[in-house]
Write a protein that binds this DNA or RNA. Structure first.
Lengths: 134, 134
DNA sequence: GGTTAATAGTTACCCTAGTTAATTATTGGA
DNA sequence: TCCAATAATTAACTAGGGTAACTATTAACC
């Protein structure tokens, strides 16, 4: 399929731009949002978990986590293991998650306008499968 | 379709990484490759054309173009209009294009392994359609 | 049980690649 | 002819990531 990856990459920046504009209202960016989403799903996690999931190096995750702590959206939970930091969303973090979740879902619906659920399913399958091959 | 965009974004970085590793052998990066591809398709173009196509600001394109000129892969073609610079691939640029084209196509095939042509078509359609909505 | 290896997180420094604002040169239209 | 728009550039800044080196802690092994 000629041009598939080219198109994939070409769309990334504009998409990211609209997401970042949306999140900017809450002093967030998509990279910070990713951490929030991960913690929302997992409940608690260490920095290494996040690093592995998004395949981003630890120092980058350290920075994201510090920023989110400054914003009061996540906090450390006490742990027996003093080597690792276990993080979770604060009440404020959960609140912001809900607000942004709704806005992002609305944006996604807008962007997917005119596309059948089936088409979207196929696209999703495609993205899931290529992940393993990369 | 829950998680579609999340998955889309999550895959971007690993994909970009493998493409950049591939291109690095030729002192290229994907952002430089984009300019080469555009000139290969269009024959000649101005910086503004490239800027519009990829939705990247002009100063960024100026840098990409200068870098490719240094590498001897593109050159300016004389033009009556002294305000705009019309660029095209050099012979060396075309040669490098062919080499990288083959490697990138092989990588893409590898990544799309196990996916039917139809699935890929649907994914491509999806990407084309959402472009207009972003 | 004590030494060694592995792991989690951090710090410092650098790189890629983008952005905005301002500037120059040129062109096209009133 | 003069003014507005356009193409390209420069300078200064930003986001975000990467590597290497380091500390602290934990796990593993003899």
């Amino acid at each position: 399929m000629e041009g598939l990856f080219r198109q994939y990459i070409r769309i990334y920046r504009p998409l990211m731009k609209s997401l970042n504009e949306l999140l900017e209202k809450y002093q967030l960016s998509y990279s910070l949002w990713q951490v929030i989403v991960y913690l929302k799903d997992e409940g608690t996690s260490t920095l290494v978990d996040i690093s592995n999931y998004y395949q981003v190096e630890k120092p980058s995750i350290t920075r994201r986590v510090h920023r989110l702590q400054e914003l009061g959206l996540i906090e450390e939970v006490p742990s027996a293991n003093r080597r690792e930091k276990i993080m979770e969303l604060t009440a404020e973090g959960k609140r912001i998650y809900q607000i942004c979740r709704e806005e992002i879902t609305a944006l996604e619906h807008h962007i997917s306008k005119g596309l059948s659920e089936e088409e979207q399913q196929t696209a999703f399958q495609f993205l899931m499968k290529i992940q393993d091959n990369i």
